[in-house]
Nucleic acid binder design. Structure first.
Lengths: 208, 208
DNA sequence: ATAAAACTTGACGTTCCGTCACTTTTTATT
DNA sequence: AATAAAAAGTGACGGAACGTCAAGTTTTAT
């Protein structure tokens, strides 16, 4: 019996191209998580595949570009869920809570995906704001602005509020992952309460 | 008349050692800000001094170590002010507001110092949690815990609250620096209100 | 003044980079 | 099925940056 092959809908060429790209990304993800971004080399990545060094450059220009592709892949995976969650939100609290839950949930489920930007013992922590990721931040900001104009939220500085939510998400997410059993619900509740209480105070500075 | 020299308190040797170290750090700071961390090389750094390449390695093992030294220098500069400010705080709000003000003030005053970890259009953002910096975070957490045990603050998860404050500080600070005229006071008020309102909500989940 | 110690220097072997002429594989054509 | 054209893969190669070290220079100690 012949080797069973994937149907190869549109040519063998296209198929291997997709496979090679995936292989490089997978290798990169594992080696970045292992050695950290700074110390891994393009050769380290390619050595984890059965491709030649030259082939790497048919797919990416540099390790920086592979890293960007990995981050974009993360963003592409989460963004639709974030968008959908917020689209269904009927209150500002739904919006914020949903955002944190989707994000923390993804972190906990797919630890490896974000392992790269966790701080490896006194080593360098690296983060890249790719167009996809920036777009995700912008969407949050737009949704916050919309919540304000819809009257779900008192007027506040949406840029700073977005920044605050993003900073909290990454930093609290990091601490959440530091424990072996990630307490997603606890992190969601904490972050949400902080923001929700915060906006009350922001729009009403003389409360308790 | 002889060339005027610095008193050289303790030998010429020690003096040049200090000078060379400073020269390397200054060169590194400027070149990192210019090229970003990823693309600068040890040679780029040493080329900005009048030292030879080999000399670099008498002072640092790698560019990573220079970077760490720069971050440590930042932390060493801010930490005393943070500590003093919080020591004088009589309320939890004083504590938080003082922390943000000292931090944002330092960012605005010494832009260059933190320029490296600002996001340069699609480039990699790098952050290093050096022992000095981690110590700074820990001090904040300890002070928060102390505020709780002193009854200035209802019991909350101090680790997450610290993470939230740190994340907000970096991310809001980044947006603050994005404007050419840094609005320190606005950023302080915003971040402080968010935290203060947040802790009210955290310890009293059924408020507004 | 002289010797020892400390530090600086740049040339050297090594590793990784990015490219390119060549080979292999796939697709299109007859 | 055979053959030509196109596409993609390969690894050797020159170049750049690395980290080291033997030799040279400056400072300190005697």
């Amino acid at each position: 019996m012949e080797e069973m092959e994937v149907p190869a809908k549109r040519g063998k060429r296209e198929q291997t191209k997709v496979n090679n790209r995936k292989a490089i990304l997978a290798a990169a993800r594992s080696i970045f998580a292992e050695l950290g971004y700074g110390t891994t080399t393009v050769r380290d990545i390619i050595r984890r595949t059965d491709l030649a060094s030259g082939t790497f450059y048919n797919y990416f220009q540099s390790k920086e570009e592979v890293f960007q592709a990995l981050m974009d892949a993360n963003a592409l995976e989460v963004r639709p869920h974030l968008i959908e969650t917020r689209a269904n939100a009927r209150t500002f609290e739904d919006l914020i809570e949903g955002t944190f839950r989707v994000f923390f949930d993804y972190l906990a489920r797919d630890r490896g995906a974000f392992e790269v930007l966790r701080s490896n013992a006194g080593a360098i922590r690296v983060r890249m704001d790719t167009p996809e990721i920036v777009a995700g931040f912008d969407e949050l900001q737009v949704d916050i602005e919309k919540a304000i104009s819809d009257g779900l939220l008192e007027p506040v500085n949406a840029s700073y509020l977005t920044a605050a939510a993003v900073g909290m998400a990454f930093e609290i997410g990091d601490r959440m992952l530091a424990q072996e059993e990630a307490d997603v619900e606890g992190a969601v509740k904490f972050a949400t309460s902080l923001i929700m209480g915060g906006v009350v105070k922001l729009s009403n500075p003389d409360s308790p």
